[in-house]
């Protein structure tokens, strides 16, 4: 990255939605003239986009039954109380 550390921190803050309007504006102006920072920003955005679009897998079949089968026996005292 050819640009300053401040600029890459600003990129991170912008991606975390933490940059204020002035900072965002300054960043966008910089991205227009700096192709390095511009691709850095775009690649990070794309990375985040890929991560947030990963599918959630369903839980495996019979998962709950398998867990319950592995539990230690019902506590003695609760049986006595019934």
């Amino acid at each position: 990255m050819a640009c300053s550390k401040e600029m890459s921190e600003l990129i991170q803050r912008a991606l975390d939605q933490e940059a204020n309007e002035g900072e965002r504006h300054a960043l966008m102006e910089h991205l227009d003239v700096c192709s390095d920072c511009c691709s850095h920003y775009n690649e990070l955005k794309e990375t985040i986009d890929l991560l947030t679009h990963l599918d959630q897998a369903p839980a495996p079949d019979y998962f709950t039954q398998k867990v319950i089968a592995r539990l230690p026996d019902q506590k003695q005292d609760s049986k006595v109380l019934k």
Binding site: A57, A59, V67, I68, L71
Partner: peptide
Amino acid sequence: GDHDAFAKIVDLYKKPVY
């Protein structure tokens, strides 16, 4: 020691935990 209650907990959270 209620296993049925625990089964409900497992059902609620199995997807995110997995």
